[in-house]
Nucleic acid binder design. Structure first.
Lengths: 277, 277
DNA sequence: ATTGAAGTTCCACTATATGGAATTCAATTT
DNA sequence: AAATTGAATTCCATATAGTGGAACTTCAAT
């Protein structure tokens, strides 16, 4: 039973960022990537007409965009005319992951946190109204590598997501929250902007975010906010585990560990990235 | 000691495919992705001028392309003006990986092969003159998830690479080989097209490719070719291990296991993807 | 065979990318 | 502190490349 599961709702990533600040025009590239995103957000290969329905491009244009994406290896076209995400992206992603300073610096701290708690530790960053998992340390490594890394989950019902939100300046926070299309995953899921904002206030006060079985029944976590010095990365880290094993009290007792780890990571980043300002 | 290590030579991916068949023009998108590839192929973050030197675009153009890539989240721009690959690619790659039928179908067979041999099993596909690793099964999972997946290695000195080459039609094989810029990694590395083509013939005859410490000293592997029914994926799978533990005889004895696994995978794909033709 | 839906190609039109040059910015040196 | 240098960024007239409506082809189903 994996934890931060795919969410297959309508929330197209990027919506959030658009809202956050009149985003600069990315021209032809932007349109092509939007098409790529449509295919990537679907949970099964899409045929031409499916994509056409979700895109607002005319037939001819869309067809050329798809052809170009396929030619570049960003999409792959099966013989049944279904489009799926291309493996060239794996090469890019491998570099993105290995070269990400945020992740590299955080890694030893994630391990330490895992050693202290014995539970799964996640590192994630905000991207619009989604959180993208950058790394994870768990005992039962045997499961599936790559499993969660790169997966996107909603901000409003994950510990890392809410922690990240609490680290945003108010203007951005408002914009992101406004862009969320709330969906109930469990009985405890927060489904209104008001409830979410109220909780963000608590997180800012206490320094810890919790996921109280809000995304998946039976899964709890404590998280703490985290951001790079220049705020180019805003996210959080969390300790996650099954409710039957982790009482609210135990979770509570880890809160300080998570906060300390977050603090240590940010300190390291300050040292590594900017002995300046 | 990782096995299929990064290769940081000049071989820009895509060169191969260009040569393979007058590649259709991908216009603005193609240029942007070429820029992305330059950044992704470097082993450290690049500054504007570095990229300018490797790109053949004029300053203004390149700057806009980079800005667009950053805006789209495909690149990330540090406050020291260095560009690195953006985390949005992780999201795309997660989908590419999880949704790749080739990999999904192969997975149980990789496990079985691992159980039979006790050594690391790799699945990879050709992409131009590189091989991109799609999956890997190894005992010591604890190392680093994501480690090799998505990594690109040269075709000419890896088992999976040579196996994949042997599955190509002659015309494409010639074109790919012609695009290779040979580099000596070890004493055993094949460094001429002639030697490589000769070995491809042997692989075609025997059904197995070997890496006899040609990429990394002390690392050996047996591989077998593999391709999807429509040849949209051409690659191979391999069993890899340290030379001190794996004698040439032992390696030889696994050859048939690897071939059988490859055969089983292709059979499964035929059943799953095309009860047609 | 016939129909219909899905995918692909075409080409005049127009929006968009281009790229050389000017400008701003940020370090380094005097 | 002022000057210098090299890098990064912005500007804008021009040319190129993307657009999109419509015609065409392909394939599956009846």
């Amino acid at each position: 039973m994996d934890n931060p599961a795919d969410h297959e709702d309508e929330a197209r990533s990027g919506i959030g960022r658009e809202a956050v600040r009149g985003r600069a025009d990315t021209g032809t590239l932007g349109k092509a990537i939007a098409v790529l995103d449509i295919v990537a957000s679907a949970d099964q290969p899409m045929r031409f007409t499916d994509i056409l329905a979700r895109s607002d491009q005319p037939r001819g244009t869309l067809h050329r965009q798809l052809s170009n994406l396929v030619e570049e290896g960003l999409l792959s076209l099966g013989r049944d005319h279904s489009y799926s995400v291309g493996i060239r992206l794996l090469k890019f992603a491998a570099k993105a992951w290995a070269g990400n300073q945020f992740r590299v610096i955080a890694e030893p701290h994630l391990r330490r946190l895992h050693d202290l708690t014995g539970e799964t530790v996640h590192l994630g960053v905000l991207r619009g109204n989604e959180v993208i998992y950058l790394d994870k340390v768990e005992s039962r490594q045997a499961v599936r590598m790559y499993s969660q890394i790169g997966n996107a989950s909603p901000v409003y019902c994950t510990g890392v997501g809410k922690a990240g939100l609490s680290a945003l300046p108010d203007a951005e926070l408002q914009a992101v929250v406004a862009s969320i299309r709330f969906r109930r995953f469990t009985d405890s899921t927060l489904v209104t902007p008001e409830a979410l904002l109220r909780e963000i206030e608590e997180i800012r006060a206490s320094g810890n975010a919790y996921d109280r079985e809000e995304h998946e029944p039976g899964i709890r976590c404590v998280a703490a906010p985290l951001h790079s010095a220049d705020r180019s990365f805003v996210g959080g880290l969390s300790v996650t585990g099954p409710a039957y094993r982790i009482s609210p009290e135990l979770l509570e007792s880890w809160a300080v560990l998570v906060r300390n780890a977050a603090g240590a990571i940010m300190e390291d980043m300050g040292a590594r990235l900017g002995p300046r300002t």
